Amino acid sequence: MKKAMLVAVVTGSVLAMHAGLAGANDKAAPHWSYDGKTAPAHWSELDEANSACKLSKEQSPIDIIDSATKKAALPALEFKYAGGAAEVINNGHTIQVNLPAGSSLKAGDFEANLLQFHFHTPSEEKINGKNYPMVAHFVHKTVDGKLAVVAVLFKTGKENTALAPVFAALPQEGKPTPLASFDPAGVIPANHAYYKFAGSLTTPPCSDGVRWQVLKEPVELSKAQVAAFHNLYKMNARPVQPLNGRVVEVSE
């Protein structure tokens, strides 16, 4: 898999797609990373296509400050997820789990199909100024190409049995591992209370127009599971971005 696959699986569908989601465009995409001369501060300099990384006023991730959020009658999140065969890939930026068609997210009149989820360490989102050890971003796409991401925060605790098959696989770059059966619903916490805001992809090309929902209740990962991910990626999180007047809503 090419290093820009994560944005390719999401952005390819949006622009044609997250800096980690489309396929054919990956060959020409310049290398980007989380440190050195290709770190987030330089993403916009690497390619004209990454201009939103610097110019957009709706960038993700953000620091969610509870005292500054607005309570709202947000629609309940319905995770219409189904189990099935899946594929775990190391795309050079993260571990990503590609999922078969048939799962979707519904919130009121909004509905989008689940494409994949991937991990960042520490969590890209901050809550009241603090990161969690890890986060999973569940990426969804509507029939008209709009993206919606659900962030599931992880705290250190007992082993996450739902994710055990993924953490047992954790392939090296370029060696995808098939999973005969995986149920993404097992990763979602029981409490679906959430924060909602307008944001962007957190990797090049940083396209905005992404609907973000961050679940308030974290789920547990064991120290061994976090350590296994750190063996591949010690840090792959973009720094938080300015709100620029955006309002973060929180479900009542």
Rank of each mutant, 00 (worst) to 15 (best):
residue 136 A to H: 00
residue 158 K to W: 07
residue 231 N to R: 14
residue 53 C to H: 03
residue 238 R to G: 04
residue 9 V to H: 08
residue 22 A to F: 10
residue 72 A to D: 12
residue 40 P to G: 10
residue 65 I to F: 09
residue 58 E to R: 12
residue 183 D to E: 08
residue 108 G to V: 05
residue 213 Q to V: 10
residue 15 L to A: 12
residue 59 Q to R: 15
residue 88 V to P: 00
residue 229 F to D: 01
residue 228 A to R: 04
residue 79 F to Y: 06
residue 248 V to M: 04
residue 69 T to S: 09
residue 59 Q to C: 07
residue 54 K to T: 11
residue 240 V to M: 06
residue 210 V to K: 02
residue 188 I to N: 01
residue 58 E to W: 09
residue 119 F to I: 08
residue 215 L to P: 01
residue 84 G to E: 00
residue 204 P to F: 04
residue 131 N to W: 03
residue 26 D to A: 15
residue 145 G to W: 08
residue 52 A to V: 04
residue 219 V to H: 00
residue 203 T to R: 08
residue 85 A to S: 13
residue 101 A to M: 06
residue 51 S to C: 11
residue 87 E to S: 11
residue 102 G to N: 00
residue 127 I to K: 09
residue 76 A to N: 13
residue 206 C to G: 03
residue 125 E to K: 04
residue 213 Q to N: 15
residue 156 T to R: 06
residue 177 T to K: 08
residue 248 V to I: 15
residue 72 A to I: 07
residue 68 A to L: 15
residue 95 I to N: 00
residue 141 K to Q: 14
residue 5 M to E: 13
residue 60 S to A: 13
residue 16 A to F: 14
residue 136 A to I: 03
residue 180 A to N: 11
residue 212 W to R: 07
residue 23 G to A: 14
residue 252 E to C: 08
residue 215 L to I: 04
residue 80 K to A: 12
residue 128 N to R: 06
residue 138 F to Y: 07
residue 83 G to R: 01
residue 100 P to Y: 02
residue 241 Q to H: 06
residue 192 H to A: 13
residue 105 L to K: 01
residue 173 E to N: 10
residue 200 S to P: 01
residue 224 A to K: 09
residue 111 E to T: 14
residue 104 S to A: 15
residue 43 W to S: 03
residue 172 Q to D: 15
residue 73 A to S: 14
residue 238 R to A: 10
residue 190 A to K: 15
residue 40 P to F: 08
residue 167 F to W: 06
residue 37 K to F: 12
residue 224 A to T: 09
residue 210 V to F: 05
residue 34 Y to V: 02
residue 234 K to F: 11
residue 214 V to D: 00
residue 133 P to I: 04
residue 184 P to M: 01
residue 226 V to E: 11
residue 203 T to N: 10
residue 125 E to C: 07
residue 71 K to I: 10
residue 237 A to R: 02
residue 149 V to G: 00
residue 186 G to I: 02
residue 91 N to L: 05
residue 43 W to D: 03
residue 203 T to H: 06
residue 24 A to T: 12
